Simulated scan of single mutants.
Amino acid sequence: MALLEQGRDISVVAEVENAHDILVAARKWCPDVVIIADIDLAGESSLPAVAEVRSDLPECRILILAGRCHPTVLRAALSTTVHGLLFKDAHPSKLAEAVRKVAAGHQVLDPDLVLTAATASSGMLTAREVDVLRLAAGGDDVSRIAERLNLSIGTVRNYLASTVTKLGARNRIDAIRIARDSGII
């Protein structure tokens, strides 16, 4: 962020280490632009904080820097109505230009990130898969999910297996984590 301050028109007023502190700092400083240094900050999704900043400080513009992450996570970031989304390894001059554009009211989206999010065939969960995963995340077992959704136990297992595959997860617990981090559930 120090590189941003080399331009006389950009001042960094705060830096935070975790997603929880984003809203606290934004409320304190009321910046023109909040730069989220990654979708995943200290192992915690920053997307809920983005939604809180949008709600509490609607005049504040948001620019997210993303690493190479799962298309589902990128789609979730885009769905939070951010004003800018760039790769986190963007050249400092490109970042400074993006900050200026976002502050001026323009939207800045890295075309490679958008293409990755839009064209990936994996990661697209159906509404029913989301319902099943949400209930599993809430602690319901397969038979309870089947009962609640009026499905067979085999169908519930198929939906859960499908979510693991589509999200590129290692197992059901990992699928729940990915879905939570990306704002799907």
Rank of each mutant, 00 (worst) to 15 (best):
M1D: 14
L3F: 08
L3H: 13
L4V: 06
R8A: 15
R8T: 12
V12A: 00
V13I: 09
H20A: 15
V24D: 12
A25R: 08
R27K: 14
W29S: 02
D32Y: 06
V33W: 01
V34L: 10
I35K: 06
A37Q: 11
D38Y: 11
D40K: 12
A42M: 13
E44C: 09
S46H: 09
L47R: 09
L47M: 15
R54K: 15
D56I: 14
R61W: 07
A66L: 03
H70E: 07
H70L: 03
P71S: 06
T72R: 10
L74Q: 04
A77T: 13
A77W: 12
T80P: 08
T81V: 12
V82Y: 03
V82M: 12
H83S: 13
G84R: 01
F87P: 03
K88A: 11
D89N: 13
D89C: 05
A90F: 05
H91K: 14
P92F: 02
S93R: 13
L95D: 12
V99R: 02
R100E: 11
A104K: 03
G105P: 01
V108L: 05
V108S: 05
P111L: 14
L113N: 01
L113G: 01
L115W: 05
L115T: 10
A117R: 01
A118Y: 08
A120I: 08
E129W: 04
V130N: 11
V130Y: 11
D131E: 15
G139S: 15
G139R: 12
I145C: 04
E147A: 12
R148G: 03
L149D: 03
L149G: 00
N150T: 07
S152A: 08
G154Q: 10
V156H: 02
V156L: 07
N158Y: 13
S162F: 02
T163A: 12
L167P: 05
N171L: 00
R172W: 00
A179T: 08
D181F: 05
S182A: 14
G183L: 10
